[in-house]
Amino acid sequence: MARSINPARVDFVTLRLFCAVAQSGSITKGAEACHLALSAASRRLSDFEGTTGSKLLERSAQGIALTPAGHVAMQHAMRLFQGFEQFSSELGDYASGVRGHVRLWANMSALTEFLPAALATFLERHPDIRVEVEEQLSGDIVRALVDGLADVGVFAENTPAYGLDIAPFQTDELVVLCARQHPLARLKRVDFKTCLAYEFVGLNRSSSLLELTSRAAEQAGIPMRLRVQVRSFDAMCHMIAAGLGIGVVPLAACSAQVSVLELKVVRLKDPWAVRRLMMATKTGERLSAAAGLLVGHLAGLSEADKGAARPSRRRAAGA
């Protein structure tokens, strides 16, 4: 049976000291950072290890290093600090007259294409609500929702999303971008298999878009040759314009760059090129009034765009 740790025996001063020692590799430096005497710091660390029942720090002539158990403790300690800072920030908002706080995590496509205008109208209607927006990869958004770090998430479909209630949000069209002198530039439409004859500019690893195109290449039986990987659609457009490869991007996300950089848009024939974005919250989690208002606002925009009734929520076994 796993040993249970008494939370009353773990305080924030000790956790902050532990993190400072781990980050600096020195008990002396960690004690100084936390304004503690060296002897008091050493005693706190020993008591902390005794409380957890695990050796967390490896001491040697080269300094202090984390043990495997120490790495786990470090991750949880940082998460606790993040939660406490969020707690402090949100209560501070109420004290200053801001009566609602929503944490919205969304992928790059949603933030570039749909959310700026949607958030502008929402905040105009609800000026007493603060929306904290973070751009993250789809998989990280799901984990944040499950862990309670985000209230509302928007991510690409087909992202595994166990434990979440999801609903369709918006639809975007993926197209191929290429420089005007590229062989594909003379085409209006192309299948992705034909594109695999050329080198690609792609997003960083773990992005849902890269996973989608890589899976399509695997199904076609042709390896996808990634020449350059970047972190944004803007950077992708510049790399493509420089002739470093072609790229698959959401059309609306790069429409402004197409004319400026003289890029050519070639539409994809493949069915997966029409992609849905999903909105999600944690299953069984009661939303705050502010988060509920935001979800209703975003769902209303989705309903208006589709000209249909608002989709009912469903429990996801996978988005």
Rank of each mutant, 00 (worst) to 15 (best):
L149A: 13
H126W: 12
P127N: 14
I129Q: 02
N158T: 06
T159W: 12
D147P: 07
V190M: 11
E134D: 07
D140I: 05
V249A: 10
R189L: 13
D165M: 15
E124R: 05
A144N: 13
P183L: 04
R189D: 13
G247N: 06
I129G: 02
V176W: 02
E211M: 07
V152I: 15
T171H: 07
S232D: 13
E135P: 00
L174I: 03
D191Q: 12
D128E: 14
S214E: 08
S207R: 06
L210Q: 10
I246N: 03
L145M: 09
M239I: 01
L212Y: 00
L196K: 03
A150D: 04
C254S: 12
L137V: 09
C254Y: 01
G148V: 09
V248I: 15
K193V: 02
G148S: 10
R215Y: 03
P183A: 11
E218N: 02
E135C: 14
S208N: 02
E211R: 01
Q170E: 09
R189N: 13
C254H: 01
V228W: 00
R130Y: 11
F200W: 11
R189V: 14
H182K: 06
G221Q: 10
L210N: 07
S138W: 07
F192M: 08
I222P: 04
A156P: 10
P223M: 02
F233Y: 13
